[in-house]
Design a binder for these strands. Structure first.
Lengths: 217, 217
DNA sequence: TGAAGATTGTCGCCGATTTGACAATTGGGG
DNA sequence: CCCCAATTGTCAAATCGGCGACAATCTTCA
């Protein structure tokens, strides 16, 4: 099962070999079709997950009827750490967007690992820390930067996270991530396209010039 | 952002007695005058801090020339955990707003505690988790809720966090927290005042009706 | 293949917010 | 104690973004 885990995720590869192996030893491989829900908002923690192939997104519902994609997870990414660490309910829906291969370390199995390797808690804490740092910069951007900058940042982040230039995302989702209407997002995106930064297509966006895109952000 | 920190801090009181005592044993007490900077943005971690008396605020600078108060820390609150756990630079300035009594567990001392009590990492991770959950709800609010709701939430949170009805904060700071102009914040606040929810004064706001204020949020 | 649903591109209007400006009030330091 | 800086209260003009609407394009599935 570990064959596919060669994707270099900064968190997982930074783990001490013993703890990394302990996690993999207890992980179960599974596959999930598009649309499947790994877990839902409010669920009690059921363990740790990793994306081996495909794509998973964490989506939240800030208000009734509003959906906001919080994070796009590419192969190599581990997720679900927050609830595993503090025992609280899941803050997101985790939904499969492209047919996915997953790893699952059930909660009981994780606790066995933790009993043998207490420092796994520090590792998990560091994962939460990286999420927290992302959230902090996002909050700063959200209220202080103009729309174009926020959009550019989200786009560049999505492209870099997925490791590919083509990002499969609806303009409506992008708009929700940045907190503007679809129409406004569309106008800004077409501005980027005219500048040669990106290319727009049905249901996906291709980042042509990551350099300048990050320069905008 | 608003973190709930009463005198009996939920995080610290939830610690196992052994680890709580180990922290206190290594903590040094100190006092700092108004305006003092406990640490600054970008500093390397120097350990864990706690507010015993007075008030400390974590402020960030989302863009040049813009200042945004991220969190108000009242007696009982521990802070600085993020950089201690992941070793990264401080994401905030920690500044003393009212003459403060502080506890400081230097980084080396903390690592001694951690060597003897590895589970302290889980405790620290859970503190980061609570911050992360606050950040997640904040991000949802920021882009989906109207201004009045956001302002009411920030105000109610600040009052509850400080444990007193009088909150010493400039309207300009409040505006920056919710991401609107000072004029707009002022108009909304005066609306609250006319409704009897709060009372406005020079440099401070008194929450008269916490119940209804939270009902607005 | 064909039709239905989903997504994008693009209007114009309207309300809300920002910006800039200025007076009034308050608090602190010389 | 008084002056100056900081903060608040308020206004008008200008701008920005949301909303509704609609056509065009694309995908999917029967």
């Amino acid at each position: 099962m570990s064959a596919a885990m060669t994707i270099s995720d900064p968190w997982f590869t930074s783990l001490a070999p013993g703890r990394r192996q302990a996690l993999l030893d207890r992980a179960r491989s599974s596959s999930a079709p598009t649309g499947a829900r790994v877990y839902g908002v409010g669920d009690p923690p059921d363990g740790l997950w990793a994306v081996v192939g495909g794509e998973v997104r964490l989506v939240s519902y800030p208000a009734v009827g509003i959906e906001s994609v919080a994070m796009i997870l590419a192969p190599g990414a581990w997720f679900g750490e927050l609830s595993v660490l503090d025992g609280g309910p899941r803050p997101h829906d985790a939904v499969v967007v492209r047919p996915a291969e997953l790893l699952h370390v059930p909660l009981a199995a994780f606790e066995q690992v933790a009993a043998a390797h207490p420092l796994i808690y520090r590792d998990l804490g560091r994962l939460v820390c990286s999420r927290q740092r992302s959230a902090l910069t996002f909050m700063g951007q959200a209220i202080a930067q103009p729309i174009a900058v926020r959009l550019a940042r989200v786009l560049a982040g999505a492209a870099r996270a997925s490791g590919r230039a083509q990002v499969q995302v609806r303009q409506e989702d992008l708009a929700a991530m940045v907190g503007v209407s679809r129409q406004t997002a569309n106008r800004t995106l077409r501005g980027f396209e005219r500048a040669g930064l990106i290319e727009l297509a049905y249901g996906r966006i291709t980042v042509c010039d990551p350099e300048r895109l990050r320069a905008v952000a």
